[in-house]
Write a protein that binds this DNA or RNA. Structure first.
Lengths: 138, 138
DNA sequence: GTATTTGCAAATACTTTGCAAAACC
DNA sequence: GGTTTTGCAAAGTATTTGCAAATAC
């Protein structure tokens, strides 16, 4: 298991600033390469390695979130607060789920499992409103 | 988005049989390469590609489950029935969570989101009993 | 001034794929 | 017998890393 030490002081470079700005603008959950493309419009010389390094760093210090929806790549969320996600199995879209956090789940699982629970995440899957109306005749 | 067609008839080859047997034996959730190693003890000439192909095929026809815990690789579960998981952030261990399914979550999310919800999954994170006792002095 | 960060390119990790031979029903 | 599956090896995709030069504070 890897456990990141976080001793270094983070400097606010231009690249890092633009990555954060772009992430905070979007309503969806971009992949590293989406972020690279977004940032490249502002900083044409930015490198993909820098984007990866920053996304990793920022998520390990909880400024952003790294998300995993079972795809081959990770996605990122400029909102560091815990919230649930919902994804469309037809078009791949991922939205924030408009559901309140269920803190009681942690206590329940802690009692039942013997683990010391730190957090939980719920991901919902289904068909989004757009895909539902697209497939009217289907 | 990719949508697997499942028209072919699956044949029960020796490789496929051993993969299923080995998967059903273990209490943990092995990666493809764990499965490869397990199967190799019974069928020394099996190839990694065959293991990947079968794990993919078997999970797409819901004989097994493909799981994702945000690691760089997928894990597999010989139990196809929906259940929740709990993972230790210290040692990486992943257990089945001894929690009943919460079917009501689907209805709640369906109302709130406008999606047609098909399923949900809860993953808990925390520190497992073993790691808790290991770190007595820490 | 010095430690952090960058761009570049090469390396790595995991998974998928093309193909001819073998196995299944 | 015809289709599915296999083993092998090569290719593909996402991510990480080493290093010298540039930058932040």
């Amino acid at each position: 298991m890897k456990e990141k030490k976080n001793k270094k002081i983070l400097r606010m470079t231009n690249q890092r600033k633009v990555i954060l700005e772009e992430l905070s603008k979007v309503y969806f959950h971009p992949t590293a390469s989406d972020v690279y493309e977004m940032v490249r419009k502002k900083l044409p010389n930015v490198s993909l390695g820098t984007v990866y390094r920053n996304l990793e760093l920022l998520s390990s210090c909880r400024t952003i979130q790294k998300l995993d929806f079972g795809e081959s790549h990770k996605r990122f969320d400029g909102n560091p607060d815990p919230h649930y996600h919902i994804n469309c199995t037809r078009c791949g879209r991922v939205d924030d789920a408009p559901i309140e956090l269920k803190a009681e789940l942690d206590q329940e699982a802690e009692k039942a499992s013997g683990y010391q629970i730190a957090s939980h995440h719920i991901s919902y899957s289904g068909i989004c409103p757009d895909c539902m109306s697209d497939s009217t005749g289907q």
